[in-house]
Amino acid sequence: MSATPDGLDEPGRIGDEAPPEDPRAVAAADLRGGLLWLVFGVAVLVGSLTMDRLEHQNINPVTVPGLLPGLLGLALIALGSVLAIRSWRRGGRGGSPPPLDAALFRRLAWVNGLILVFTFGLVGHGLPFWLASALYVATSILVLQTPQRRLEGRSLGVREFAFAVAVGLGSGAVISYVFQELFLVRLP
């Protein structure tokens, strides 16, 4: 599937299916994944072994807080090793993981960027929640629908802008009203 210049979505296409992944590429990705799990398991095990055993509280030594986390660390090490060894045998050593589609990467960067700005920048910093939501929703719609407009050879018109703002304000108001007023739930 071709991507539009800015890498955002290209709606309206029917019937495209993602091509099957190369087994060696999958094995290579799993090999890296297995090694990451292994490292994570070692970290959990070390964290459990160095955890306070509460000897000063005279507790039963078989009930130390790090017991189950330590066992989980061992399980993660074992399973991560099995995944890594299996992927190695399936040709993961020679292959390289499936390349991240550049268009997908850019699209995800946009979506995640908007989400991060909303979560860390707008929510919980004094801005009313309905306004923060309205800003986020309206901006997201305008940004994510850019490729559709380009595909149809249109520039951003008043109608599209008004639609995005209306959806943003409407959703912000309805969500705030339903949660805060109707069901008495606190909003961030």
């Binding site: 909303f118 997201s140 719609i141 959703s171 949660f179």
Partner: peptide, 19 residues
């Protein structure tokens, strides 16, 4: 359209996680 729906869903996720 999903480009309209999904931002609203994320706002709901934020509320759901916080509430």
């Amino acid at each position: 359209r999903r480009t309209v729906l999904m931002p609203v869903v994320y706002v709901l996720c934020t509320v759901g996680a916080f509430a």
